[in-house]
Design a protein around this nucleic acid. Structure first.
Lengths: 112, 112
DNA sequence: GTCAAACTTCGATGGTCATCGCACTTTGAT
DNA sequence: ATCAAAGTGCGATGACCATCGAAGTTTGAC
């Protein structure tokens, strides 16, 4: 009865324009260590990774929440491949709006 | 009866070594907009400012709390001059431990 | 010594957020 | 058509934190 082929909600919610995102939102996203872990993995991989590929110290539902926050903050792009949800860092776009921020954070994380 | 000339607690608590400070602590400090406002003012002033000099949209007791957090995160140095508590950004020290982070944040804030 | 100025400290309060388990959906394979 | 895999959505819960007012402290001025 229900829609089988994306009749209702889109499978992946819309991604925000980076212009509409403020520093506050970005920092709120990146202040969480689990989310920084995700960003770090995506940064290191330099390619899209499925949610399951990234090992996180939290439950699946919590992980979903974190990916959601990162998407809303303009940090990652998400799309489906089969049953897997892929995540890619919006590296260049983000760098245009917040120059130097991501590299500085990655460097600080690596130094530790 | 009580100590008049710093007999008990020090007037200004000790400042942490920047080496002992992690990225997590720094981000927790800078995620608050009021604290970023303080940092921004100190950055722009390029000199120490008393607490009262910086206009903040919060009560005095809350302001005290924010300065406390910034000090603990290694971002500012505090000392007394008379009854005024002065605050100076630990700009160069901080830059050594977290290169590029402060400039990136200031730039992002200015862009808005 | 008295007073005001400039902060600090203390508790209390309220809101926000990370976390979880469980039920549900969608997809691909058998 | 079944089944397993991969995530999502939904309360509920607990912790943390920004905020305030009121009382206290320290200093400089008169």
């Amino acid at each position: 009865m229900a829609s089988t082929q994306h009749g209702g909600r889109e499978r992946v919610p819309p991604h925000p324009d980076i212009d509409t995102i403020g520093l506050q939102q970005v920092l709120e996203a990146l202040v969480d260590p689990v989310r920084r872990l995700i960003v770090g993995e995506l940064y290191a991989a330099s390619k899209a990774l499925s949610c399951g590929t990234i090992e996180l110290p939290v439950s699946k539902s919590t992980a979903t929440h974190h990916f959601h926050v990162l998407r809303e903050a303009g940090l990652i792009r998400q799309y489906y491949v089969g049953t897997s949800r892929m995540n890619a860092l919006r590296r260049e776009e983000f760098d245009e709006s917040f120059p130097g921020l991501l590299p500085a954070l990655i460097a600080a994380a690596d130094r530790a």
